[in-house]
Design a protein around this nucleic acid. Sequence first.
DNA 1: CTTCTTGTTACTGA
DNA 2: ATCAGTAACAAGAA
Length: 287
Amino acid sequence: MPELPEVETIKNDLNKKVLNKRIIQVDVRQKKAIRGSLSIFVKTLLGKSFQKINRVGKLLIFKTKESEFYLLIHLKVTGQLIYCYKNGVVAGGHDFPKVEINKLPNKYSHVIFKFADLSQLFFNDMRKFGYLKIVSKKDLEKILAEYGLDPLSSSFKLNNFREIFKNKKTSVKAVLMDQKLIAGIGNIYADEILFQARIKPNRKVNTLKKEEIKNIFEAIKIVFKKAIKYRGTTFSDYVDASGNKGDFIRFLKVYRREGEKCEQCGNIIEKIKIAGRGTRYCNRCQR
DNA sequence: CTTCTTGTTACTGA
DNA sequence: ATCAGTAACAAGAA
């Protein structure tokens, strides 16, 4: 599940690889992957190139060089963006459920861009929740206005962060995962951040002390910085823009570790359900 | 066979 | 208004 660290890794990779290359073919094999008109999608991108790729929360924003339009890509649960030269062979690829991604396209390759140098960008998505979409500058502004604070943006400051918790009564995990409040945290990192901050995920935010909110704020920065350093978390589907797995799974303290011993105190990691999501935490380390 | 998983949106009922 | 809960989406794992 690509969350902020994974999407950030892909964005950084692609910014080094695909900019300023003319798109000579847009091959849409699965119409469902495209939101809005397919013909407008193809027409807007064919013959153009990407100027710069940005990210807000889990959303990728490709600025086209020759027009005022943007390509938005959301990977949702199992989306991948893999770039490779000419023959569709990915150097570090791994099995993507039972399908080799060393050779692309595979049966989950729903959209394929071919560039003038014959390199290709593959959008693969097993679950088909992800999408690509063309938007105008105005549309983009409207969409971005719906997103909350991005932890890597310059406005991610403690004062702004405290505002998010004001007049709320829901659980702290629900707040962390609400993209309209904070952009980029999903189920893996919500659990990891709350372990790092030593806060129980079911704590109601109106019971959080000033110091505890600060701890969560710092935990987001610490966990995301390290997760980006190790290029994200791979359980099954996530890979970077070269098809390589992320390494952060080695550092997970609670996510998918229910039944195992807490590294810090030896207590058994518990699993409960909060805001409809499986939630792991240490009942002794987190308060 | 059933149940669970995931991000997001949409809806319902409290 | 706010929030919790659930269904839907797809496909695979357990």
